[in-house]
Design a protein around this nucleic acid. Structure first.
Length: 543
RNA sequence: GACGGGCUAGCUCAAUUGGCAGAGCAAGUGACUCUUAAUCACUAGGUUCGGGGUUCGAGUCCCCGGCCCGUCACCA
């Protein structure tokens, strides 16, 4: 597989267009140094054929890559224009009510298929909105203009001028008066009937996926709609959108391994952020009472069907709110986004993938402690020691990573025994303090913090808490995390961020905050099981 | 990281027990002025992911490596 693209790239460099001042013949000779007797094979030949046609277009005094094209209608608009003309004709309006036709339109799109008929040809065109057939006939175009039609290849982008008609077989078509080559393509498109099947090429060359597979385009557009609906919701709730640093001196605010980088001028090591949390809370300190950021996070970890090293989250913080307020906001936001993007708060069942998912609020709140007891018999209030917890886990056949801290072990219990059951949306509520260094203690509950996580389809969607604003307690929690890093070699422990501590020492109001994975939300709404179907350019191993 | 599946023409896929590497689409030439997976005839197109081995003979069997997918592990 490596050589598939490797050789292709070499192939293109071999046939790069010649300089402007060369004649067409020069170009042909230049582009094929191996002379005509030894013609190129395979992909190289396909490219050379297209280069030859490009030269012929130039020989006619035409630019195969003109700078712009005045299009009057998208393909969908052109179809609608005709349907309107047809309706008018049916009520006797128009020059020829038997054969309605529109005014002359100018459309543009990619050639998806060609059906040549000698002195006539049918061309299927596709643009960003839809598709339409172009019908080219030599006698309506003239001999000279029609020659261009014979120089077209699948994949070329062309402009077509003509009026819209319906052919005898009933296909709405633009009857071509003039064809303009807007972009000559050098490489063929994937199989027109089967589309692009090779997953690897779909991810590495997403543009081909978008051209050939409807679902790829659908997901790309859905992702955009999800983010737009999210912004609309947040702005509607009075939140201010901000952007905070991606290159940070301390990768704090979450438990994850960061990417490292270096600023030359400052001669300073920096990290790519693993969370937006602490900067946003600084803004709460500063008096922006409702704030959110939609942005990319980077975590130097493995990749699988729902993890990518860079992913997008929304984090929001609201002064004077607690985690109960945030829970209501999350279920309202997610259901609103579903309604806006799909028309319903109930996501349809998908055969072999999932049942119907009902996102209508309120989502059930499940007490974390009770839920773990119910699924495993383990009560984390009783088993407050890493050794005891490890034993209890082993008794129940749960994999135990040697030397893990108590909080990490419990996290494992939750993710392997509790989460997978949460297919319909649920909130797990009230976590132990050991695994939540940024959340505030719950009143009258020893060792428990006001934290919740939202789950759908057995995976985490969001993580939220009543934010810890006691600077003394926060410093202690950070110190515990730093200790964990040393004691357990846990380089994913959170880090002490002195700047942040100084900020909240100035006083941060009571605040509720949440982080929610946008890629996972888009997966859920799209009904996709892999994050790679949602990310346009997922991380891939180098070839 | 471990185990399993996969990689064959530009694309989609075949190839029996180890026995001449094939088809459809795309491409080229020719025919064809209402097709729509157009049709018909002909032509060309291959380092079978890379490297090594066994064998008279390897797409096929063995070893090493690469990439993709899946499961597990890790990971919010």
């Amino acid at each position: 597989m490596p050589c598939r693209w490797g050789s292709a790239r070499i192939g293109l460099t071999q046939v790069l267009p010649a300089p402007e001042n060369m004649t067409n013949q020069d170009q042909q000779e230049q582009s094929n140094p191996a002379n005509e007797a030894e013609s190129a094979a395979g992909e190289q030949k396909l490219i050379e054929d297209r280069l030859a046609k490009t030269a012929q277009i130039r020989a006619k005094g035409l630019d195969p890559y003109p700078p712009r094209y005045d299009r009057t209608h998208t393909l969908v608009e052109a179809t609608k224009l005709f349907e309107y003309a047809e309706i008018m004709a049916s009520s006797g309006v128009g020059d020829d009510v038997e054969h309605p036709r529109t005014e002359t339109v100018r459309i543009a799109g990619r050639v998806m298929a060609r059906r040549g008929m000698g002195k006539a040809a049918f061309i299927d065109l596709k643009d960003g909105h839809g598709s339409i057939q172009a019908f080219a006939r030599q006698n309506t175009m003239g001999d000279d203009a029609y020659e261009i039609v014979n120089l077209l290849d699948i994949g070329d982008i062309i402009g077509v001028e003509g009026s819209v008609i319906r052919t005898r077989r009933g296909e709405v078509s633009v009857e071509v008066q003039q064809v303009t080559v807007l972009t000559k393509a050098m490489r063929p498109l994937p199989d027109k009937w089967h589309g692009l099947q090779d997953q690897e090429i779909r991810f590495r060359q997403r543009y081909l996926d978008l051209i050939s597979n409807e679902n790829a385009m659908k997901n790309a557009l859905l992702r955009s709609s999800v983010v737009k609906a999210m912004r609309d919701f947040m702005h509607g709730e009075g939140f201010i959108e901000v952007e905070t640093p991606i290159l940070v001196p301390v990768a704090a605010g979450a438990q994850a391994t960061p990417f490292e980088t270096h600023h030359n001028q400052l001669d300073r090591d920096l990290y790519l952020r693993i969370a937006t949390e602490l900067y946003l809370k600084k803004l709460i300190v500063g008096g922006i009472e409702r704030v959110f950021e939609i942005g990319r996070l980077f975590r130097n970890e493995g990749l699988d069907h729902d993890h990518n090293p860079e992913f997008t989250t929304i984090e929001s913080y609201q002064a004077y709110a607690d985690y109960n307020d945030v829970m209501a906001m999350v279920e309202n936001m997610v259901s609103f986004i579903a309604k806006e993007t799909t028309g319903s708060m109930v996501l349809p069942a998908i055969e072999g993938v999932r049942p119907e998912i009902d996102l209508t609020p309120p989502w059930p709140r499940l007490d974390l402690r009770e839920e773990i007891v119910k699924q495993t018999g383990i009560d984390f209030v009783e088993v407050r020691d890493a050794e005891l917890l490890s034993d209890a886990m082993r008794d129940r056949g749960i994999h135990v990573e040697a030397g893990s801290a108590w909080g990490r072990l419990l996290d494992k219990v939750i993710s392997s025994e509790v989460e997978p059951n949460l297919i319909q949306p649920h909130f797990l509520v009230d976590y132990p303090v050991e695994m939540s260094p940024l959340a505030k203690h719950k009143l009258n509950s020893d060792g428990i913090v006001e934290r919740f996580e939202g789950f759908v389809m057995g995976t985490e969607l969001c993580n939220a808490f009543t934010e810890l604003n006691d600077p003394v307690d926060q410093r202690t929690r950070f110190e515990q995390q730093e200790k964990m890093r040393l004691e357990f070699g846990d380089d994913q422990a959170d880090r002490l961020d002195e700047d942040f501590l100084v900020a909240i020492e100035h006083g941060m109001p009571p605040t509720g905050g949440v982080g929610l994975g946008i890629d996972r939300l888009a997966m859920l709404i799209a009904g996709e099981e892999s994050i790679r179907e949602i990310l346009l350019f997922p991380a891939m191993r180098s070839m």
